[in-house]
C-alpha cells in the first residue's frame, strides 16, 4: 500500500490558516497506517486545540472516503458535503489530494500527509518499509523476489557493491544490504546462477504515465 506520515501539525495549521470552514477527508483506501474516520476525528480535535492557542476557531467537517484516488467514487461521495466548505484537508496520499484537486478546480485541497513509498506493513515489528519503486519493469523473478532497485540504497541492478558490513548497508547500518539478501535467497532456492546474469541499466522508458482500463 501507499505509506504516508502525518505532516508536522504546525505545517498543517499554517496551510489551513487562511480558511475557517475546512473539511477533513480521511481515506479508507490503501494508505497506511489507517487514515480513516478515526484519524480524521483525531486530527480535527488536535487542530481545534492548536487553533485555539493561535486564537483561531476553525469549523471542521469530518468524513472518510472509500478511495480518494478513485475519481468516480470521490466525486460522488464528496460532492454532497462541500456546501460552505472553503478548503479540504486530505488525509490521503498525494494521489488522493490530486484527485480532489482535479475534481473540484475551484476548491483548495491541502495535504495532511507526506507520501513516502509503496510499502509493506510489518505489523509485529511495528514498521512500514519501502518495497516497490513502481519502475514499470519488474525484475523480481531474477532477484529472488527482492527488489534491488528499491532496497539497495544505491539502486544497483548488478550488486553487491562491496561496501556492506556484516550484511548491513554502508550508507545506513540499520538497513539490510539488499544484494546480500538476494544472494542468500537465491542460494536457498538453488538459483545462484541467476546472480551471474547481467542486468542492463534501468529502462526509464518502461515506466508508463498512463494505462488504459
Amino acid at each position: 500500500m501507499i505509506v504516508t506520515a502525518l505532516k508536522p501539525l504546525d505545517e498543517i495549521l499554517d496551510s489551513i490558516f487562511p480558511y475557517n470552514r475546512v473539511l477533513i477527508a480521511g481515506c479508507d483506501g490503501c494508505t497506511q497506517p489507517p487514515r480513516g474516520l478515526r484519524e480524521a476525528e483525531t486530527l480535527k480535535k488536535l487542530l481545534e486545540l492548536a487553533g485555539k492557542r493561535r486564537g483561531k476557531d476553525f469549523q471542521f467537517k469530518v468524513l472518510s472516503l472509500v478511495k480518494q484516488c478513485d475519481s468516480f467514487l470521490t466525486a460522488s461521495e464528496l460532492k454532497p458535503h462541500l456546501e460552505g466548505v472553503e478548503a479540504v484537508l486530505s488525509l490521503a496520499c498525494g494521489v488522493g489530494v490530486q484527485t480532489i484537486a482535479e475534481l473540484f478546480p475551484d476548491l483548495p485541497v491541502l495535504p495532511a500527509q507526506n507520501s513516502h513509498f509503496l510499502g509493506q506493513e510489518n505489523r509485529e515489528g511495528g514498521a512500514l518499509e519501502d518495497r516497490c519503486s513502481a519502475c514499470g519493469d519488474c525484475i523480481l523473478a531474477q532477484t529472488g523476489g527482492i527488489c534491488p532497485l528499491t532496497r539497495c540504497a544505491k539502486g544497483l541492478l548488478n550488486g553487491a557493491c562491496g561496501g556492506a558490513r556484516e550484511g548491513k548497508c554502508e550508507m545506513d547500518p540499520e538497513r539490510d544490504c539488499a544484494w546480500e539478501l538476494i544472494y542468500q535467497r537465491l542460494e536457498r532456492l538453488g538459483k545462484l546462477d541467476l546472480i551471474r546474469e547481467f542486468r542492463p541499466p534501468r529502462n526509464y522508458q518502461a515506466k508508463a504515465w498512463r494505462l488504459t482500463t
Partner: peptide
C-alpha cells in the same frame, strides 16, 4: 502505553 506515547508526541507538537 504505545498508543499514548504516539498521542503525546502529537500533543507535544501543539504544546500540550
Amino acid at each position: 502505553e504505545h498508543f499514548m506515547g504516539m498521542l503525546k508526541e502529537r500533543l507535544n507538537q501543539i504544546g500540550l
